[in-house]
Amino acid sequence: MAQMTIAEALRQGLREEMTRDARVYCIGEDIGIPGGWGGAFTVTLGLEKEFRERIIDTPISEAGLFGVALGSAIMGMRPVADVQYSDFIFCAMDQVVNQIATMRYMSGCKLTVPITMRAPVGATGRGAQHAHNIESMFLGIPGIKIVCPATAYDAKGLLKAAIRDDNPVLMIEHKLLYGSKGARTESGAVDASSDIPDEDYTVPIGKGIIRREGRDVTLIGTLLMMHRAVQAAEVLASEGISAEVIDPRSLSPFDWPLVEASVRKTGCAVVVEEGPRTGGVGAEIAASLTERCADALLSPVARVAAPDIPVPFSPPMENFYIPDVARIAAAARSVIVRQRMSVSA
């Protein structure tokens, strides 16, 4: 057992999977340059010394590298392809959406496409083009699984599950949760480190987890928003409100049994996401909750999300953009008021 950051846990996970399976390799930009950073957030730092031929640095060619990953995957390799910032995956959208997501299906479901794609998200003082939360953009693309680890334990376990999965898996990581050190330290970072077991483990894709049990309201959030939701639950507890916090961990497939059971218990839900409100993950979860458990909902599902604007640079504006503890708590109070009115009526 050892305490690790997400960056350290991912690095250990990659090392173990590459050791276990010679078909696993990493491909990306600046991931294994001696004297470099091990990717933008130090995840692959030093791995090139151990796996010289399986840490493949590419030119700045995102469409090229995701296509290369796909071509190698249908030949039986198991690539882990990453972009430095999730915003850059848009340069590879044809390969990801038209090719990676459809290749197995178009082949008559004969081919397997075992690709893990890693993409760091989140607004972190870099302006609009190193800040997107891409979750909602990929949620509507059949053929890609999506996982969103909020802790080091889950990051390693989900990474290993993704690498061993025979399907494309998009692993969304948050810049403020990596715990990157040295010159790559992030200002405003949140501690997401965990005790990592010595033995091999995976976290199953499609299984969420209850981060805090409660009776009155269900808060649903991933990545940084999971941490904010837990903080909001603490604030609410001081007011006598018992909030349950669910971290779905995977967005696709989604752990509906877990979320539905919680909402049936509490009767109301707040979905929190860092990205824009319109067409967001929260919209999908809220709509599905009304389809699945309208009979149990005592209040409309509330969404806490960013406004529908590009991510602004100026720190006061950026802080205004990102959902914070106060907004999450306020949304929880509002659904509970409605819930109680509904019960008393």
Binding site: G64, G67, A69, G71, S72, A73, M75, M77, S107
Partner: peptide
């Protein structure tokens, strides 16, 4: 491989097959 109907989209994939 299943034919790629996006113009140019097959070139990176073939390159990845060669890399394998």
């Amino acid at each position: 491989a299943p034919a790629i109907a996006i113009v140019g989209g097959g070139a990176p994939i073939a390159t990845g097959m060669a890399l394998a």
